[in-house]
Design a protein around this nucleic acid. Structure first.
Lengths: 334, 334
DNA sequence: TCGCTTTTTGCAATCCTGTGCAAATTCTGC
DNA sequence: GCAGAATTTGCACAGGATTGCAAAAAGCGA
């Protein structure tokens, strides 16, 4: 059997001529070790290639250092940017991220949370889907922290981070009107996630307040291709809209491409377009999309600082962040 | 202290009126338990919300089920697609992915591998950077498997998966020539990673074989903005190239946007462009980029099937996969 | 050098599970 | 109903670390 075992604290202790406890204390911050033995231990550890076994440590301390990230569609620009920011911040605070990707079903989120429990994750961060209450209760009862990002759930216990979607939608409605647009449309997917629906709701309501109707079109899941299809639906109407708010930037990219290349329309002259997320592609010169920036870094910071805090503050369990409007050239004026 | 502990096998055993071993065996596939007690255990576990502690199990079995993914620039389309495929395949085979993102330094890869050792990961998959030999040796000695994707290292032990970059580059060179191009250029970043350099090398060599020189321009790291800068450099020369092979699709997108919007050039009439990776954006109608597809799913399958195999087959430790040419309209003819 | 306080150190118990071994139970065939 | 075979069960130890407690060592002032 060539499968050589990992080196244990025991072996380091023997090599250094000290007790196993001394080794342990050397690698535990805040423990009492004399500089002399500490050095002996470090030397021996270096030679033997010793690394603390975090499985065992997690077992004892009842704190694994693992944080579970539950995400679907991780290949998508917004999701991957969010994942990047979260893993980075987690690493900075000494945690490590376990990544589980789900399909769009809620079942798969439940399965992911079960996995998180098995590995005794200190926390789970949910970016997609909404788990069953029974399973989130289980997590909470086990002392596992829960963070819901853009999920808009009303349960007690998890930290909920959301954006001011409705307000943002209202802002873009007035921007459209100020640009002289009168026939507004909203392009959405059929995913029906809380944040997407909030944007739709906010946009329709704000338009109504301005005395305008909104054509709402929904199709498929939230991606580039759906944007093309929705463009097809909106631009073949006998009265074309002159402004479209797309629920996400990916939809907007698809919409713009179809509008330009398939319907030979000019943006923003003939039609104004806005998106949401501020993915990297929104800034590319083919799109120059006016959109709302998801404050991914702030979301990540907010998340890990809440995870680091050991006191549960009930008042801060729901955070609403502001989405800044990034003005580019897909809307006239500005 | 509201921090209630996780429920252990002990408690399940008491509730079910059996021994703790019975509980353990119920959740160990292939162990000997009578259907009767098995059911009693499962019922009790369900009621109490018991989940096997994988930290403890990993400790005992000397196999954590964790696979470490070491990636930089995870927000990037190609990297995130690769990450998605890998995590998905790992999950399917009962493993779980631990995601560590690094900056572009090799030091940070070493740090990541140390973390992998601490958590006793069964394997580490390296998508970026190249770790120091001493640390990879340590991993291997500890029985941790190593997979290098597009890294082109010549060490023994790890599984190395690469593409036929040079050959692909040669194919695109002949495609350019067939399209009537005579002034070839190669757009690269300064990252100098093995696969990027292989593409450059292959392209230059193939062009030379066809009797043509290649203008090589490199800038920054491998992203959209660098593509724009390289376009600036290439298209302000007194003799503009009429075909550009970009080392990655992101570079190509930046290049195309600059060529069109800044230099008012028409693609493919005035200049032909090709990329590498086949990121999603390459298929968007604003780009319609002819490019080589990274076989991400096949890479992922190859990786996890090698990880699942328990016998180390020395002959299969280096895999070279074929990159298919995806023909779109950024090159004339075809 | 002595007596007292402050650090260090080692022992042993603990976390939760898997598993070899022997005892106990069930099954089988007659 | 019984001997023998086959299965199931429980005990106890292993795995690698942390930590309270008491003993040992070191530091310190006179």
């Amino acid at each position: 059997m060539s499968q050589k075992l990992f080196v244990s604290a025991q072996e380091v202790a023997e090599k250094a001529g000290v007790s196993r406890s001394a080794v342990s204390r050397t690698f535990t911050s805040g423990a009492s070790v004399s500089p002399k033995t500490r050095q002996k231990v470090l030397d021996a550890a270096e030679v033997l290639g010793y690394h603390v076994n975090h499985l065992a440590r997690g077992l004892m301390r009842n704190e694994s250092g693992i944080v579970c990230l539950i995400v679907s569609d991780i290949g998508t620009p917004y999701r991957s940017a969010m994942t990047r920011a979260l893993t980075q911040q987690l690493q900075n605070s000494g945690k490590v991220a376990m990544l589980i990707n789900t399909d769009r079903s809620d079942d798969s989120v439940d399965l992911a949370l079960r996995q998180a429990i098995r590995y005794r994750a200190d926390a789970s961060i949910i970016l997609s889907g909404l788990p069953d209450k029974s399973i989130t209760d289980l997590c909470l009862k086990n002392g596992q922290r829960l963070v819901l990002i853009n999920r808009d759930d009303d349960s007690e216990g998890p930290l909920k981070i959301n954006l001011d979607d409705e307000d943002a939608a209202a802002r873009i409605a007035t921007a459209f009107v100020r640009a002289g647009c009168r026939k507004l449309a909203f392009a959405n997917s059929q995913a029906g996630t809380p944040s997407l629906m909030a944007r739709e709701r906010g946009f329709v309501a704000a338009a109504k307040a301005l005395g305008l109707d909104v054509i709402v079109e929904r199709f498929g899941h939230t991606g580039y291709e759906s944007g093309r299809v929705v463009a097809q639906q909106l631009l073949t109407r006998k009265e074309r809209p002159d402004a479209v708010f797309c629920a996400t930037d990916l939809l907007a990219c698809g919409f713009m491409d179809a509008a330009r290349h398939q319907f030979s329309m000019s943006i923003p002259d003939q039609i104004c377009v806005a998106g949401f997320d501020d993915i990297e592609q929104a800034s590319w010169s083919s799109y120059q999309l006016t959109t709302f920036a998801q404050p991914v870094d702030m979301i990540a910071r907010e998340t890990v600082s809440w995870l680091a805090g050991d006191t549960v503050q009930p008042e801060s369990q729901s955070v609403c962040l502001h989405a800044d409007l990034v003005w580019r050239t897909s809307i006239r004026g500005g």
